[in-house]
Write a protein that binds this DNA or RNA. Structure first.
Length: 294
DNA sequence: TCGAGTGATAGTATTACCTCA
DNA sequence: CCTGAGGTAATACTATCACTC
Protein backbone atom coordinates (compact mmCIF):
# COMPACT_ATOMS: atom_id res chain seq x y z
CA UNK A 1 0.00 0.00 0.00
CA UNK A 2 1.17 3.51 -0.59
CA UNK A 3 0.59 4.83 2.83
CA UNK A 4 4.23 5.55 3.48
CA UNK A 5 4.58 7.56 0.34
CA UNK A 6 1.47 9.43 1.15
CA UNK A 7 2.74 10.22 4.55
CA UNK A 8 5.97 11.57 3.12
CA UNK A 9 4.30 13.84 0.71
CA UNK A 10 1.30 15.03 2.54
CA UNK A 11 1.82 14.48 6.17
CA UNK A 12 -1.32 12.46 6.31
CA UNK A 13 -1.12 9.09 7.92
CA UNK A 14 -3.84 6.55 8.01
CA UNK A 15 -4.06 3.80 10.52
CA UNK A 16 -6.32 1.08 11.68
CA UNK A 17 -6.26 -0.75 14.94
CA UNK A 18 -7.33 -1.11 18.50
CA UNK A 19 -5.64 -0.13 21.60
CA UNK A 20 -5.49 -2.46 24.52
CA UNK A 21 -7.58 -1.28 27.39
CA UNK A 22 -5.97 -3.50 29.90
CA UNK A 23 -6.05 -1.85 33.27
CA UNK A 24 -7.72 1.17 31.78
CA UNK A 25 -11.36 0.45 32.23
CA UNK A 26 -12.34 4.05 31.87
CA UNK A 27 -11.11 4.06 28.31
CA UNK A 28 -13.55 1.52 27.16
CA UNK A 29 -15.68 2.50 24.25
CA UNK A 30 -18.79 4.21 25.37
CA UNK A 31 -20.97 2.28 23.03
CA UNK A 32 -20.40 -1.00 24.79
CA UNK A 33 -23.63 -2.07 26.25
CA UNK A 34 -22.56 -4.54 28.87
CA UNK A 35 -20.10 -4.06 31.56
CA UNK A 36 -18.33 -6.91 33.17
CA UNK A 37 -18.07 -6.51 36.86
CA UNK A 38 -14.64 -6.49 38.30
CA UNK A 39 -14.84 -7.66 41.84
CA UNK A 40 -12.95 -5.72 44.47
CA UNK A 41 -10.43 -8.46 44.52
CA UNK A 42 -9.96 -8.87 40.84
CA UNK A 43 -10.00 -12.31 39.44
CA UNK A 44 -7.11 -13.80 37.59
CA UNK A 45 -5.47 -11.27 35.39
CA UNK A 46 -5.89 -11.83 31.69
CA UNK A 47 -2.89 -12.32 29.52
CA UNK A 48 -1.01 -9.06 29.12
CA UNK A 49 -1.61 -8.88 25.43
CA UNK A 50 -5.27 -9.62 25.49
CA UNK A 51 -7.84 -7.09 24.54
CA UNK A 52 -9.89 -6.45 27.61
CA UNK A 53 -12.88 -4.23 27.10
CA UNK A 54 -13.60 -4.48 30.77
CA UNK A 55 -17.29 -4.52 30.71
CA UNK A 56 -19.37 -5.09 33.72
CA UNK A 57 -22.62 -6.72 34.31
CA UNK A 58 -24.82 -5.65 37.09
CA UNK A 59 -24.21 -3.67 40.15
CA UNK A 60 -21.22 -3.53 42.36
CA UNK A 61 -21.76 -2.71 45.95
CA UNK A 62 -19.25 -2.36 48.67
CA UNK A 63 -21.06 -4.62 51.01
CA UNK A 64 -22.10 -8.11 50.36
CA UNK A 65 -25.78 -8.27 49.85
CA UNK A 66 -27.24 -8.85 53.23
CA UNK A 67 -29.66 -11.64 53.12
CA UNK A 68 -32.72 -10.71 55.07
CA UNK A 69 -35.31 -13.03 53.73
CA UNK A 70 -34.86 -16.69 53.70
CA UNK A 71 -35.72 -18.43 50.51
CA UNK A 72 -37.22 -21.82 50.79
CA UNK A 73 -35.18 -23.87 48.47
CA UNK A 74 -37.34 -26.90 48.80
CA UNK A 75 -40.33 -25.53 47.07
CA UNK A 76 -39.12 -27.10 43.90
CA UNK A 77 -39.05 -30.46 45.52
CA UNK A 78 -35.54 -31.22 44.37
CA UNK A 79 -33.83 -30.22 47.52
CA UNK A 80 -33.97 -32.11 50.71
CA UNK A 81 -34.20 -30.25 53.94
CA UNK A 82 -31.03 -30.42 55.84
CA UNK A 83 -30.20 -29.62 59.37
CA UNK A 84 -28.91 -26.20 60.21
CA UNK A 85 -26.62 -27.08 63.06
CA UNK A 86 -23.75 -26.45 60.72
CA UNK A 87 -24.16 -22.84 61.67
CA UNK A 88 -21.68 -23.08 64.46
CA UNK A 89 -19.08 -24.32 62.12
CA UNK A 90 -19.96 -21.72 59.55
CA UNK A 91 -19.58 -18.91 61.95
CA UNK A 92 -16.25 -19.94 63.25
CA UNK A 93 -13.68 -17.29 62.85
CA UNK A 94 -11.31 -18.05 60.04
CA UNK A 95 -7.77 -18.85 60.89
CA UNK A 96 -5.09 -16.27 60.52
CA UNK A 97 -3.97 -18.04 57.42
CA UNK A 98 -7.44 -17.98 56.01
CA UNK A 99 -7.79 -14.33 56.67
CA UNK A 100 -4.49 -13.64 55.06
CA UNK A 101 -5.41 -15.57 52.00
CA UNK A 102 -8.75 -13.95 51.68
CA UNK A 103 -7.27 -10.54 51.87
CA UNK A 104 -4.11 -11.00 49.94
CA UNK A 105 -4.99 -13.44 47.27
CA UNK A 106 -6.53 -12.08 44.13
CA UNK A 107 -8.45 -15.28 43.96
CA UNK A 108 -9.90 -14.97 47.36
CA UNK A 109 -13.47 -15.95 47.65
CA UNK A 110 -15.20 -19.00 46.34
CA UNK A 111 -13.74 -22.28 47.23
CA UNK A 112 -14.18 -24.74 44.48
CA UNK A 113 -12.78 -27.96 45.83
CA UNK A 114 -12.16 -28.54 42.25
CA UNK A 115 -9.75 -31.36 42.47
CA UNK A 116 -12.50 -33.86 42.69
CA UNK A 117 -14.58 -35.50 45.27
CA UNK A 118 -11.76 -37.18 47.08
CA UNK A 119 -10.00 -33.95 47.63
CA UNK A 120 -13.22 -32.21 48.40
CA UNK A 121 -14.17 -34.62 51.08
CA UNK A 122 -10.75 -34.27 52.55
CA UNK A 123 -11.18 -30.54 52.61
CA UNK A 124 -14.74 -30.32 53.72
CA UNK A 125 -15.55 -30.74 57.30
CA UNK A 126 -17.41 -33.90 58.09
CA UNK A 127 -20.51 -31.91 58.79
CA UNK A 128 -20.32 -30.18 55.51
CA UNK A 129 -19.88 -33.43 53.68
CA UNK A 130 -22.89 -34.76 55.47
CA UNK A 131 -24.88 -31.72 54.54
CA UNK A 132 -23.76 -32.06 51.01
CA UNK A 133 -24.81 -35.63 50.81
CA UNK A 134 -28.19 -34.91 52.28
CA UNK A 135 -29.16 -31.58 50.92
CA UNK A 136 -28.94 -32.16 47.26
CA UNK A 137 -31.73 -34.08 45.80
CA UNK A 138 -29.41 -36.77 44.63
CA UNK A 139 -26.01 -38.03 45.27
CA UNK A 140 -23.66 -39.56 42.79
CA UNK A 141 -25.08 -42.95 43.46
CA UNK A 142 -28.70 -43.78 43.57
CA UNK A 143 -30.23 -46.60 45.46
CA UNK A 144 -29.10 -49.06 42.87
CA UNK A 145 -25.56 -47.95 43.17
CA UNK A 146 -25.58 -46.77 39.60
CA UNK A 147 -23.63 -43.64 38.88
CA UNK A 148 -26.56 -41.61 37.73
CA UNK A 149 -25.85 -37.96 38.09
CA UNK A 150 -29.21 -36.36 38.32
CA UNK A 151 -29.43 -32.71 38.10
CA UNK A 152 -30.59 -30.27 40.63
CA UNK A 153 -32.74 -27.48 39.34
CA UNK A 154 -32.73 -24.37 41.40
CA UNK A 155 -36.04 -22.80 42.08
CA UNK A 156 -36.89 -19.40 40.73
CA UNK A 157 -36.49 -17.97 44.17
CA UNK A 158 -33.10 -19.52 44.61
CA UNK A 159 -31.93 -18.38 41.21
CA UNK A 160 -33.19 -14.88 41.77
CA UNK A 161 -31.47 -14.73 45.10
CA UNK A 162 -28.22 -15.96 43.68
CA UNK A 163 -28.49 -13.49 40.85
CA UNK A 164 -29.00 -10.69 43.29
CA UNK A 165 -25.98 -11.80 45.24
CA UNK A 166 -23.95 -12.06 42.10
CA UNK A 167 -24.80 -8.49 41.28
CA UNK A 168 -23.35 -7.48 44.59
CA UNK A 169 -20.29 -9.67 44.38
CA UNK A 170 -19.27 -11.95 41.59
CA UNK A 171 -17.13 -13.87 44.02
CA UNK A 172 -17.87 -14.99 47.53
CA UNK A 173 -15.73 -15.44 50.54
CA UNK A 174 -16.38 -18.55 52.59
CA UNK A 175 -18.60 -16.77 55.06
CA UNK A 176 -20.74 -15.30 52.37
CA UNK A 177 -20.92 -18.64 50.68
CA UNK A 178 -21.99 -20.33 53.87
CA UNK A 179 -24.57 -17.69 54.55
CA UNK A 180 -26.01 -17.93 51.10
CA UNK A 181 -26.07 -21.68 51.23
CA UNK A 182 -27.90 -21.58 54.49
CA UNK A 183 -30.40 -19.05 53.27
CA UNK A 184 -31.12 -21.02 50.16
CA UNK A 185 -31.03 -24.47 51.67
CA UNK A 186 -28.21 -25.40 49.39
CA UNK A 187 -24.78 -26.72 50.11
CA UNK A 188 -21.89 -24.29 50.04
CA UNK A 189 -20.54 -26.33 47.20
CA UNK A 190 -23.66 -25.77 45.17
CA UNK A 191 -23.49 -22.05 45.78
CA UNK A 192 -19.88 -22.10 44.83
CA UNK A 193 -20.52 -23.99 41.62
CA UNK A 194 -23.34 -21.68 40.73
CA UNK A 195 -21.05 -18.69 41.07
CA UNK A 196 -18.34 -20.38 39.09
CA UNK A 197 -20.68 -21.18 36.26
CA UNK A 198 -22.21 -17.75 36.44
CA UNK A 199 -18.83 -16.10 36.12
CA UNK A 200 -17.79 -18.36 33.30
CA UNK A 201 -20.97 -17.85 31.35
CA UNK A 202 -21.01 -14.15 31.94
CA UNK A 203 -17.53 -14.02 30.55
CA UNK A 204 -18.53 -16.10 27.59
CA UNK A 205 -21.46 -13.86 26.81
CA UNK A 206 -19.28 -10.84 27.22
CA UNK A 207 -16.74 -12.28 24.85
CA UNK A 208 -19.42 -12.72 22.25
CA UNK A 209 -20.62 -9.19 22.75
CA UNK A 210 -17.09 -7.89 22.53
CA UNK A 211 -16.52 -9.87 19.40
CA UNK A 212 -19.53 -8.33 17.74
CA UNK A 213 -18.49 -4.91 18.87
CA UNK A 214 -15.00 -5.33 17.51
CA UNK A 215 -16.36 -6.56 14.21
CA UNK A 216 -18.43 -3.43 13.92
CA UNK A 217 -15.46 -1.30 14.90
CA UNK A 218 -13.40 -2.99 12.26
CA UNK A 219 -16.00 -2.39 9.61
CA UNK A 220 -16.37 1.24 10.59
CA UNK A 221 -12.65 1.84 10.56
CA UNK A 222 -12.25 0.07 7.27
CA UNK A 223 -14.85 2.30 5.74
CA UNK A 224 -13.23 5.34 7.24
CA UNK A 225 -9.88 4.23 5.98
CA UNK A 226 -11.25 3.77 2.51
CA UNK A 227 -12.86 7.17 2.58
CA UNK A 228 -9.69 8.86 3.73
CA UNK A 229 -7.62 7.08 1.13
CA UNK A 230 -9.93 8.37 -1.52
CA UNK A 231 -9.76 11.86 -0.11
CA UNK A 232 -6.02 11.62 -0.02
CA UNK A 233 -5.86 10.66 -3.66
CA UNK A 234 -8.04 13.61 -4.56
CA UNK A 235 -5.87 15.98 -2.58
CA UNK A 236 -2.76 14.64 -4.22
CA UNK A 237 -4.30 15.12 -7.62
CA UNK A 238 -5.24 18.68 -6.78
CA UNK A 239 -1.79 19.36 -5.50
CA UNK A 240 -0.18 18.03 -8.63
CA UNK A 241 -2.45 20.13 -10.80
CA UNK A 242 -1.54 23.27 -8.89
CA UNK A 243 2.23 22.72 -9.10
CA UNK A 244 4.36 24.30 -11.88
CA UNK A 245 5.85 22.05 -14.44
CA UNK A 246 9.30 21.68 -12.96
CA UNK A 247 7.96 20.68 -9.62
CA UNK A 248 6.29 17.79 -11.26
CA UNK A 249 9.59 16.56 -12.57
CA UNK A 250 11.48 13.88 -10.78
CA UNK A 251 13.46 15.34 -7.93
CA UNK A 252 16.70 13.86 -9.25
CA UNK A 253 16.69 16.29 -12.15
CA UNK A 254 16.50 19.30 -9.88
CA UNK A 255 19.10 20.82 -7.65
CA UNK A 256 18.97 23.64 -5.22
CA UNK A 257 21.80 25.67 -3.87
CA UNK A 258 22.02 25.20 -0.15
CA UNK A 259 23.15 28.78 0.38
CA UNK A 260 20.82 30.76 -1.82
CA UNK A 261 18.09 28.13 -1.81
CA UNK A 262 17.41 28.56 -5.47
CA UNK A 263 16.45 25.70 -7.61
CA UNK A 264 18.71 24.85 -10.48
CA UNK A 265 18.69 22.20 -13.15
CA UNK A 266 16.97 22.04 -16.46
CA UNK A 267 14.69 24.87 -15.59
CA UNK A 268 15.82 28.45 -15.43
CA UNK A 269 18.05 28.30 -12.41
CA UNK A 270 19.18 31.91 -12.22
CA UNK A 271 15.95 33.75 -12.58
CA UNK A 272 13.98 35.13 -9.69
CA UNK A 273 11.64 32.27 -9.67
CA UNK A 274 8.80 32.49 -7.22
CA UNK A 275 9.31 28.79 -6.52
CA UNK A 276 12.40 28.94 -4.47
CA UNK A 277 11.83 26.12 -2.08
CA UNK A 278 13.19 27.21 1.21
CA UNK A 279 12.91 24.62 3.93
CA UNK A 280 12.17 21.88 1.48
CA UNK A 281 15.40 19.95 1.75
CA UNK A 282 14.16 16.97 -0.17
CA UNK A 283 14.58 19.00 -3.35
CA UNK A 284 18.24 19.27 -2.63
CA UNK A 285 20.42 16.43 -3.61
CA UNK A 286 23.82 16.91 -2.02
CA UNK A 287 25.30 14.04 -3.98
CA UNK A 288 24.54 15.39 -7.42
CA UNK A 289 25.61 19.00 -7.55
CA UNK A 290 25.82 20.83 -4.28
CA UNK A 291 26.46 24.29 -5.61
CA UNK A 292 25.80 24.07 -9.28
CA UNK A 293 22.93 26.48 -9.09
CA UNK A 294 25.22 29.32 -8.07
C1' DT B 1 -35.68 -35.52 18.83
C1' DC B 2 -32.85 -31.60 19.20
C1' DG B 3 -30.92 -27.57 21.09
C1' DA B 4 -30.40 -24.28 24.84
C1' DG B 5 -29.69 -23.68 29.53
C1' DT B 6 -27.40 -25.00 33.45
C1' DG B 7 -25.65 -27.88 37.43
C1' DA B 8 -21.62 -30.55 38.22
C1' DT B 9 -16.89 -32.37 37.64
C1' DA B 10 -11.99 -32.65 36.26
C1' DG B 11 -7.84 -30.58 35.31
C1' DT B 12 -4.75 -26.90 35.89
C1' DA B 13 -2.64 -22.37 37.38
C1' DT B 14 -1.61 -19.17 40.90
C1' DT B 15 -0.67 -17.65 45.39
C1' DA B 16 0.45 -18.00 50.12
C1' DC B 17 1.64 -20.52 54.23
C1' DC B 18 4.21 -24.14 56.60
C1' DT B 19 7.97 -27.22 57.45
C1' DC B 20 12.53 -28.59 57.30
C1' DA B 21 17.28 -29.05 56.10
C1' DC C 1 18.36 -16.83 63.18
C1' DC C 2 17.94 -16.68 58.22
C1' DT C 3 16.92 -18.78 53.82
C1' DG C 4 15.55 -21.52 49.96
C1' DA C 5 13.10 -25.71 48.48
C1' DG C 6 9.32 -28.64 48.61
C1' DG C 7 4.70 -29.73 50.15
C1' DT C 8 0.02 -28.36 50.96
C1' DA C 9 -4.20 -25.72 50.86
C1' DA C 10 -7.36 -22.42 48.91
C1' DT C 11 -9.34 -20.52 45.08
C1' DA C 12 -9.85 -19.18 40.35
C1' DC C 13 -10.55 -20.41 35.51
C1' DT C 14 -11.53 -23.39 31.52
C1' DA C 15 -13.35 -27.27 29.26
C1' DT C 16 -16.50 -30.62 29.27
C1' DC C 17 -20.10 -33.73 30.65
C1' DA C 18 -24.76 -34.67 31.54
C1' DC C 19 -29.33 -33.70 32.75
C1' DT C 20 -33.72 -31.01 32.20
C1' DC C 21 -36.96 -28.44 29.73
Amino acid sequence: MGLDDDACNTGLVLGLGFSSTLETPTKKPSCLKFEQQQPPTTAAAPPPSSFEPLLTLGLCGDQFYQVTQKVDGNKGGYLNHHHHDQEKEQEQEPTAGDLYRRQASPHSAVSSFSSGRVKRERELSSEEVEVEKNSSRVSDEDEDGVNARKKLRLTKEQSAFLEESFKQHSTLNPKQKQALAKQLNLTPRQVEVWFQNRRARTKLKQTEVDCEFLKKCCETLTDENRRLQKELQELKALKMAAQPFYMQMPAATLTMCPSCERIGGVADGNSKTPFSMASKPHFYNPFSNPSAAC
